[in-house]
Design a binder for these strands. Structure first.
Lengths: 162, 162
DNA sequence: GGCTTATCTTAAGCCTGCTTATTAAATTAG
DNA sequence: CTAATTTAATAAGCAGGCTTAAGATAAGCC
């Protein structure tokens, strides 16, 4: 009779793996002054300048209030600027500051290092496979599961996704 | 020229998937009065009665202080009891209370539901594969990467891992 | 116009995790 | 035995999630 092997419980394994990876990212990115969550928010913001908080929260799939406080800290640190939306007095338009722009190369390098550590010993096929399977799982858990995956679109950081 | 597709960045995808799944678990387990993290701690505790906090933190791969406050809340709620270790006056021995024991079946059911949602549309091979790949990644990110995976051991909840 | 509903943001309060640092006790070195 | 080191637990302070609820504005309907 084998133990309920929580060490092999899907949810626990997934959550721990993500937490350990996030911890590694934060350790390595500490010199940047940006956390993993802030990097992610900035990453989306680059391609959606002027988006409001509700829209960015939608992209990041987190609650608007969670994003609001993330933006609070980033605005405080000078990475992000809030400008009033001239069309909608309830909303802010969000912009990266010039100060934040030089950080992209470093963010990408940190991401690459952490990914390499996590996927050490993975064949290219294994790496592709885990991404594919995670994307499917994320899609299943998403609130808007009817939407399609976003198409490859143009931008200044071609092929950098890891 | 394709965008840096953060939507396909390994770390971001992994983290989001885990967060969405954890959110689902907490939504469904709210009636239990236990969060995902508390369920996980209890799950390990069942098979390690009398373990101290440092040991349990090691099993869960989180920092001792993180576990200490988790245990604070669980002791407060009456799920866990701290008893002084007669051999070591620094340490507590941790025990599940009787009150907590009936919750296991429900915890497992919630885990099963959430897993089914996440892995909807996955073939059995896909399900096995994502677990295997996640376990390898977690092992790579673990602090004690030299240790082997734990063997199948005996216990009262055979084959329940999902 | 006026009412109702929906949307954007934030407040309050909570849980979970981290880093850093402290205290107390056990263990080891000399 | 004593001193130095290690270990168990906790304190303080912070980031980042959540739920629930509120305020302000926009949009839609009559």
């Amino acid at each position: 009779m084998t133990e309920f092997d929580f060490n092999r419980s899907f949810g626990f394994v997934l959550y721990e793996t993500a937490r350990l990876l996030s911890k590694r990212f934060d350790q390595r990115s500490k010199s940047l002054g940006l956390t993993r969550a802030q990097c992610q928010a900035l990453a989306y913001l680059v391609y959606h300048e002027g988006i409001n908080q509700a829209g960015l929260a939608e992209l990041l799939e987190l609650e608007p209030i969670s994003l609001a406080r993330l933006i609070d800290r980033m605005a405080q640190a000078g990475w992000v600027e809030r400008r009033p939306d001239p069309q909608d007095r309830r909303a802010w338009q969000l912009f990266m500051t010039e100060k934040a722009k030089p950080l992209f190369a470093e963010m990408i390098a940190v991401g690459r290092e952490v990914r390499a550590e996590a996927l050490s010993g993975f064949s290219p096929e294994d790496s592709d496979r885990i991404m594919e399977l995670l994307l499917r799982a994320r899609h299943n858990l998403s609130d808007h599961t009817t939407e399609l995956a976003p198409p490859e679109s143009s931008g200044p950081l071609a092929g950098a996704a890891e």
